[in-house]
Simulated assay, not measured.
Amino acid sequence: MSCLPNARVILAPSACGLQRMLNKMNDSVKKRGMKIIVGKTKVMVFERGESTTECDLLIEGEKVEQAKEVIFLGSLYTNDGKHNRDIQRRINARNEVNGALLAFVNSKRI
């Protein structure tokens, strides 16, 4: 049995709705002879404020990890829906690359 190869995003208005969608996805995947690797699967509940609703979502009876943040397609998503941490992460990455490039350009070996 092969494993589901690519990342998927499933959105639902409630935990119950998300569980139903996870069940449908799992059934569809199994029909194709594949398997969802629960250890590599995460769920996130988007909420305003500091509180976090805990959800027990299951695939084949195994609990799916609930994440407070996840990087998807190069962007950082947080459960509060804010983008400031993603922006700061991108700025820091750019500064690291610029610093390395500047050191290379200023090197006397060139």
Rank of each mutant, 00 (worst) to 15 (best):
M44L: 07
N6H: 02
E65H: 13
L11G: 13
I91E: 15
L101V: 03
P5L: 05
L73W: 01
K35F: 11
I91M: 14
C16N: 02
C16Y: 06
K30D: 12
N98M: 11
G49W: 13
V70N: 01
Y77Q: 02
G81S: 10
K24I: 12
I36P: 06
D56V: 13
N6K: 02
A15V: 12
S51M: 08
A67N: 02
N23L: 10
P5E: 12
R48S: 06
H83A: 14
L57Q: 06
V9D: 10
N79P: 09
N92L: 00
L73H: 01
N6E: 10
L76F: 03
G33F: 01
E96A: 07
D56S: 14
R8W: 00
K35D: 10
S28D: 11
T52C: 09
Q19D: 09
R90A: 11
N106T: 12
V38G: 12
G39H: 01
V38Y: 00
C3I: 14
I87L: 11
N84P: 01
L18I: 14
L102V: 10
K63Q: 08
V64P: 00
K31I: 10
E65S: 08
I71T: 03
M25N: 08
L57W: 04
R90I: 15
S14E: 12
V70P: 00
N95Y: 10
K82A: 10
M21V: 10
I91K: 15
G61L: 04
E60R: 11
V38N: 01
T41C: 02
A93V: 08
G61E: 05
K82N: 03
C3K: 03
S107L: 03
F104M: 03
L58A: 15
L4W: 01
N106E: 04
K30Q: 15
A7L: 06
V9R: 06
G49V: 13
D80N: 14
D56G: 15
L18Q: 13
G99L: 02
T53V: 11
D86V: 05
R8T: 13
P5F: 07
G49E: 14
R8H: 06
K68D: 14
K108W: 01
E69H: 10
Q66H: 00
F46G: 07
R90Q: 12
D56P: 02
M34L: 14
N98L: 13
F104V: 08
S14P: 14
I37T: 02
R48N: 11
Q88A: 14
A12N: 09
K108C: 04
M1R: 01
N23M: 03
E50Y: 03
T78G: 13
N6F: 02
M1F: 01
R109D: 04
D80H: 13
E54I: 07
K63T: 15
R85M: 08
D80T: 12
H83M: 09
L11F: 05
G74H: 13
C16W: 08
N84Q: 13
L101G: 07
Y77P: 01
R48Y: 05
